[in-house]
Design a protein around this nucleic acid. Sequence first.
DNA 1: TCATTGAGAATGGACGTTCATTCTCTTTCT
DNA 2: AGAAAGAGAATGAACGTCCATTCTCAATGA
Lengths: 208, 208
Amino acid sequence: MSLAEPSVVLQPQDRKDRILDAAERCFARTGFHKATMQDVATECGMSPGNLYRYFASKDDVVAGMTERDRERFMADMVHLNAAPDPRATFEALGRRHLVEEPREKTVLMMELWAEGARNPRIGDICRLMDSEVHAILTAFVVHWRTTDGIKAATPAAEVALLMLILSDGIYRRRANCATFDAEAAFGLIYPVVLQAIGVQGMSVSEVI
Amino acid sequence: MSLAEPSVVLQPQDRKDRILDAAERCFARTGFHKATMQDVATECGMSPGNLYRYFASKDDVVAGMTERDRERFMADMVHLNAAPDPRATFEALGRRHLVEEPREKTVLMMELWAEGARNPRIGDICRLMDSEVHAILTAFVVHWRTTDGIKAATPAAEVALLMLILSDGIYRRRANCATFDAEAAFGLIYPVVLQAIGVQGMSVSEVI
DNA sequence: TCATTGAGAATGGACGTTCATTCTCTTTCT
DNA sequence: AGAAAGAGAATGAACGTCCATTCTCAATGA
């Protein structure tokens, strides 16, 4: 019983997660730099000083949040590996990521992009995520083409890059315009991606 | 002669521009919030206090820079209107904007996106720019299709949106990865756009 | 021609506030 | 009791903003 964990008591990792949850909300609301440690503390019902039991500095909170996001996203991505129905799996993932994700996530991503473009520590995490996602998507395109017996000219790596570029573009528009119709945008880019993969050699107009 | 202006003396607008130039460099280097008014003052060889002769606050500097960027970008965009050779004009504009623009500009854009997602004043300028650019691009697609006698299914407004999404995606990757090959990415997305416009009904593979 | 003047531009230090971080004391568990 | 966790006041530095003072130089007058 000495090793059993009482379910009520939070473990250190849980507390860290709770702090990061609060930090996410604060950062999405006012940005990394304008949000204060006071804000984060209040948001998770703690005292400011106590945060420093779990994170060495504010920068550590930002980096911790970024790293957690990366891990979570990658965990979602691996579903693509060896998907029996590539098209359905892909569409579901795309919709979940680009349409259903709450707008706050996209706002946070803008913060991350801005910070990552200047702060090497954050930039490294962003680049790592990019290269991991790109690798997974490339493998997935190969897998899809193999499964469906597609022969297409555009290299899988380039198709994957196109997917990433389109995703980022949609993220950015969702972040800046609260009324942006993500569903419609998804309907616009999805056939473009299918075309690049080479599915049925369909043209944009045929799919829409 | 009493009204003649000595050419050496800077006019107020020139000084504002000079300050904004310095601010751009500082903001691209350390971000809106980490850059101090001292930094901006040093960068343009002025004293901090003097900045306040030209801008009421730091926020005003940020907004002024954003607004100036918008105006300059729009001034470049109008070249599309009634271009005699749509394709050449479009490709030149795309290359200038997506490939030749220095990376610092893209970093600054990340700042702008992040700030615009939270700060209504900046957000308004961003949304204004978006809608203006979207309108110009939509008109341009119509113009192009008319000039070349193209009949295509995708509405011009949707093609324009696709262009914007792709542009943003490239910007973001350039900002985060200094070694990103913008030229290659342009070569990747350009045929996608041509396809959407309906030029020669070409497929992605044919163009690449 | 050359001192005088006046007005706008610029300086740089001071002020008040904010904020990340630290410190000390209290509460809560086992 | 003793350790871990938390609260919240205290600290010290950084920063935006302001302002008294200085500088620059064209206009003026003799």
